[in-house]
């Protein structure tokens, strides 16, 4: 998964896509995941990290993660 090169992500969770002019806002966990994706961490690594840090079970995490990635793809933020 590669983050669209043109996309600017700030640590506040603000995303700006200069190609489309759209901007987005993310909650802290979404920002955290995107940061990890930027560092080329794998899905397994990211999920393990989150399981370690947060009070969440695997299936809820998997579903939330898939849904989030799906949205990022739809928004052309990752490809």
């Amino acid at each position: 998964m590669i983050i669209n090169k043109k996309i600017a992500v700030s640590e506040t969770g603000f995303i700006f896509n200069p190609a489309t002019g759209d901007s987005y806002s993310m909650n802290p966990i979404a920002t955290e995941i995107l940061e990890m994706l930027k560092k080329d961490m794998s899905e397994e690594e990211i999920k393990n990290f989150l399981l370690e840090k947060y009070d969440v079970n695997k299936s809820v995490l998997q579903k939330s993660y898939d849904e989030f990635i799906d949205t990022l793809i739809k928004l052309n933020i990752i490809e």
Partner: peptide
């Protein structure tokens, strides 16, 4: 844990 969300 809060579901990750992104909003336009």
């Amino acid at each position: 844990f809060e579901r990750p969300i992104i909003k336009k």
